[in-house]
Write a protein that binds this DNA or RNA. Sequence first.
DNA 1: CGCTGCTTTGAACAACTTCAACTTCTGTGG
DNA 2: CCACAGAAGTTGAAGTTGTTCAAAGCAGCG
Lengths: 254, 254
Amino acid sequence: MRDRKVIDLPSSNVSCNECSLQQLCLPQSINGNELDKLDNIIERKKPLKRNEYLFQVGSPFDSIYVVRSGSLKTYSPTIDGQEQVTGFHLPGELLGLDAIGSGQHPCVAKALETTSVCEIPFESLEELTQSMPTLQHQLLRLMSKEIFDDQELMLLLGKKTAEARLSAFLLSISLRFKQRGFSSTEFYLSMSRNDIANYLGLAVETVSRMFTRFQEDGIINAERKHIVINDWDTLQQLAGISQLSEKEACTKKA
Amino acid sequence: MRDRKVIDLPSSNVSCNECSLQQLCLPQSINGNELDKLDNIIERKKPLKRNEYLFQVGSPFDSIYVVRSGSLKTYSPTIDGQEQVTGFHLPGELLGLDAIGSGQHPCVAKALETTSVCEIPFESLEELTQSMPTLQHQLLRLMSKEIFDDQELMLLLGKKTAEARLSAFLLSISLRFKQRGFSSTEFYLSMSRNDIANYLGLAVETVSRMFTRFQEDGIINAERKHIVINDWDTLQQLAGISQLSEKEACTKKA
DNA sequence: CGCTGCTTTGAACAACTTCAACTTCTGTGG
DNA sequence: CCACAGAAGTTGAAGTTGTTCAAAGCAGCG
């Protein structure tokens, strides 16, 4: 339970200047005067409580959002009334970029816990980028990264076994926590098993069984939402390896 | 075999001004003088032959590309030596947006047939967008659309049956042909069954069987790469519907 | 304390994959 | 122009993985 914070999460009305997420967020590589301008257009909203919505499907697109603290999930309702979780969003990560094209949010964003976000009115941002090449570049970089990440996930969903999917998921979360200055080996998952299963394109039961198996194999410790990663290397192997070499890699530990 | 073209594909050195893909491409909603400026930075490369590469994994990112005619596939090699096809690219579609973030292409782009592309040096494009808000907006729109489309595919890969995946794939291709002024009910697939299977996260055999079944059910006519869509509605139902109601929807026809 | 929702576990079942054989197509050289 | 080799596609049967269904265990909360 020693979730050692290396950085402090920004509280509700800290400026970009003082924000610990600066290096992950839009302000990256922007300085002084320019940063103030960006800071000026940003609205800091009051925190969302668990299960509250940041936006709904079809909401008009006016702003993009950055998570300051807490976490959200985004999901799209499918025709047959189910949901497809399209992503989890941790501090410093952007939301809403998929709505620029159509002007409407194609998905729902729901807080998984108490969560605060910065709202960046898109029109103002676009104006600002006109005079700030570095800001524009950073925006394009972040969008590009999102495309890249989505493709990674596509790969995961298309090709990999349940084992590989959950491994990759845990590694991804772990890495993202690390980048934010938290422990990469011990953390709380704010999302339910159901959300994870949905996100990974698996049944809840399968995810549950995988958690159990990873624990039995000593790769992780999972006590409900509290996760400890014991064997990063094996996890990495499992995440990247095809069906053929899987058993080998797995029974090695069992 | 009446592949009626409603528009002519641009030949190798037609200007943006005269290009029939204008409405789908970056120039959309850009006019006269501005269009000339964009036109000036674009390099029209000599056509690629089938199986030639536009870029390789790790190639330095200098430009984004637009398909003028023909088609390409992009794919990433996975750790275990396999490939994951991440997309097919038809005339008017952009390639390379996933490389902005890292400065290196994360995937390979390979021509599926004789293919010509426009090369747009990214640095020049970024400069140009500084003085052309509409161009910037269009670039952001196109990137956003890519994120959105990727999420649709994630949904497909995560949730759907083989039947639904192939239906959705055929509908997607059909729609994209339509937008480009070709017939939406009759077209040639430039990619192999193998590529399709890989893209959809299925075994080749499964895809083959699905083609056969769709044909038996009278939904499509498939003679190798030549496809005729007979029953758009059923296809749409199959693409969007959950496992539960599937059989119903399918046997309805059989 | 007993409800509700989330998680875990077991067993039967279905979908897709794998393996293997066969057919059809493509293109290359004699 | 035909023959042949290799690639691509199709088909069948057996085997796995993951799903579904059903039920029990657990934590949180009024």
